[in-house]
Amino acid sequence: MATARTAPAGPASAGAATAAPAAPVALRGVGRAFTAPDGGTRDVLRGVDLDVAAGEIVAILGPSGCGKSTLLRIVAGLDHPTSGEVAIDEAPVRPYDVRCAVGFQEPRLLPWRSIEKNVALGLPRGTARRDGRAQVARLLELVGLAEFAGHRPHEVSGGMAQRASLARALARNPEVLLLDEPFGALDALTRLKMQDLLLDVHAAEPTTVLLVTHDVDEALQLADRIVLLGTDGDEPGAGIRQTVVVPGHRPRDRGSAELAELRGRLLDGLGIDRHGAARGIQATTTIPHYPY
């Protein structure tokens, strides 16, 4: 409906097939407090400083409830910080910022629209009808859903719906792609496939990606850098505890020894005891030592 309008062509619609340039993201002292039911305030985030380079993939890792999603929503302009500021390409983020696209934890597709029409929802306002159709077809091809273009969301599997959701986010031609545990609800095997798909997509459209996850392996597989979010002792509000540059180039070997060591460190950071580590056993390779 809205896409049918022929609004004056903005910069976004100039070339529907070419990806928008990736943009750097800068967070300066971002904090968010929510009003508690008793009338007081509860700090969720405190003083988050982060710079994400254009085209970089940064994973935000943290235990559940630590404010990862809140941080992502702030960057997307779905929520506002109570302190600090977020800028994309040095311009502050506005509510529902057009430069961002969000992939939610659930597919959030409109059940009465076909997959194709759902993906088209992501197209920037004022995209010409033909350009839009070509763009949607290309994205469906990219996420392997070309054959399912006419299906309704309830007629495809959860993994397919999530792929459609990713295609919808990409249709927006985002300078920054924000993914909120996009594969969290999928089964383990589908999740691995989706991770590879995301890497393919990023290779085809190298936008800046901020990925929230609680899965250490997923972060290691996908990210250039991993930011560990968490609280420091008794202080309320989560901040960045640790930043890890993931070595090697993607796609990474899921079983490499280097990653296994890093994985252990990150799990430590999440407060998970490395099995055996406490007993002085070095878990540096993926082939587990006996006794585990």
């Binding site: 409906m1 809205a2 997307a76 779905l78 529902y96 057009v98 696209a101 969000v102 939610f104 659930e106 959030r108 409109l110 929802l121 992501g122 920037p124 306002r125 919808r168 927006r172």
Partner: peptide, 19 residues
């Protein structure tokens, strides 16, 4: 969640209502 998704993809007011 659908409303938020709609807003996140740039729908507002009358278009959000219709879509």
């Amino acid at each position: 969640r659908l409303l938020e998704a709609g807003r996140a993809f740039g729908l507002r007011g009358a278009t959000l209502f219709a879509t």
